[in-house]
Design a binder for these strands. Structure first.
Lengths: 240, 240
DNA sequence: CGGAACTTTGAAGAGAGTCAAAGCAAGTGG
DNA sequence: CCACTTGCTTTGACTCTCTTCAAAGTTCCG
């Protein structure tokens, strides 16, 4: 019944009492089933969320009703920060599989952050981190080739799985090829072809949604990570 | 000598006394000449900045030393929010022309925001706005054609010029074609060709860096703005 | 088992990139 | 004030990566 926010949600430097206080305002939610919306673009903004298990995608809508996925969220990650000064959520959040989240009512968080500067700092920190990740995403979309995009995507996922305690080498993609393509600015077919090519060079082994990274070095090279992303790379490489 | 932060930097709902307090921590800086760096990626993070006059670009570096422009900043806009929880700036900021900025030392801002919840809220608000803009940029880079990108870019600039009190129909581009292309994920040549095409349909008139929007309706249509951007569009259309 | 949805593969086509060169604008210095 | 350098912009021709269209193969799940 404990949402171990202390280790999960925020890389918190809060004291134990502080964590207790934070814990008090957090609401548990019924698990979401695959395809359920956590919230939709336009819904009244009232809470931010932390993923406890499962995964979600964030997306915005284009004019012609297509979606543009802006992010995938794995456990321990915060959702909804981009709505903080809005009346309504500017994006939608949809579960990719059975997913549980912690709800953090924003008004309560506001109050609490008055008394807990560290907490406030953590929120700033999360937002600023997301800003930096967005810039990296722009670089990917603007300059990288299809292969570089997919490799970067896999390396990034790998690092995130590792961080949450799972193997960085073997994991299950919670999203479809279609969603990967959408996120990376590529056609489904291109994603599929790149996966095939990556397998032919023995870089990865793919079986449906199961991915195994067999040559991490090669993956990182193809990803052509810059210093920012490379941090992720070295973190993967460090210890396994 | 007054940096009219009240109207410029933040759409502040602060009381007058609050603004005074904020004003006290702001440092004026020597004007930057074209090409000067306000800060470089890697410099120690200590301040955020508000543009008073002129313009800057933000960019990150790719592995091969190329730059990826992540943003342009016009007067009244804040710079440096993405570094807030960092030891060093994660991006560089370079003046596109002679530019003056207000420096807001972050440590002082921190202290002040303890006593001024509204101020803190404003910072959150700015960051969250930037997050939303980033998502729109991802959509542009991931889904839009060259023409849609350029049209969106022009419509967006137009709205920002209007907001700061200048004509939304006639303005001077502070950046080169190269920088536009870099930002929009296009080759220079493509940007140039699109400009030419836009002129042949009498949508805009271009003379060097001077741009005149002759058919705003058409521009907005080509830009294919979604609801978020359309807000900008309607703001342009509203009153001139 | 069977149908729907997703994935993979192939072939053809298009939009944007690259390469190359000419045109212009701006600034320098004689 | 003009010749000249330098850098930016435009235009053209060609190339290439990725998309689109089409169809077969596979997986998932009722």
């Amino acid at each position: 019944m404990t949402c171990s926010l202390s280790s999960l949600c925020l890389p918190l430097s809060l004291s134990l009492e502080d964590i207790d206080q934070l814990d008090n305002i957090i609401k548990r939610r019924q698990p979401l089933k695959k395809g359920d919306h956590l919230f939709r673009q336009g819904d009244e903004f009232d809470s931010i969320y932390a993923v406890r298990s499962g995964s979600l995608k964030n997306y915005i809508m284009t004019n012609d009703g297509e979606e543009q996925i802006t992010n995938f969220h794995l456990p321990s990650e915060l959702i909804g920060l981009d709505g903080i000064d809005c009346v309504s959520y500017p994006i939608s959040a949809k579960a990719l599989e059975t997913t549980t989240v912690c709800e953090i009512p924003y008004s309560r968080l506001q109050e609490l952050s008055n008394t807990l500067p560290d907490l406030r700092q953590q929120i700033f920190s999360c937002m600023s981190k997301e800003l930096r990740e967005d810039k990296q995403m722009m670089l990917l979309l603007s300059k990288k080739s299809a292969e570089e995009r997919v490799a970067t995507f896999l390396a990034n996922l790998s690092a995130r799985f590792k961080r949450r305690g799972y193997s960085p080498y073997t994991f299950r993609l919670p999203m479809s090829r279609n969603e990967i393509g959408n996120y990376l600015g590529l056609a489904v077919e291109t994603v599929s072809r790149v996966f095939t090519r990556f397998q032919s060079t023995k870089m990865i082994a793919v079986n449906g949604k199961e991915v195994h990274i067999t040559d991490q070095q090669q993956l990182l090279e193809v990803a052509d990570l810059n210093d920012y992303d490379a941090e992720i790379g070295s973190k993967i490489a460090a210890n396994q």
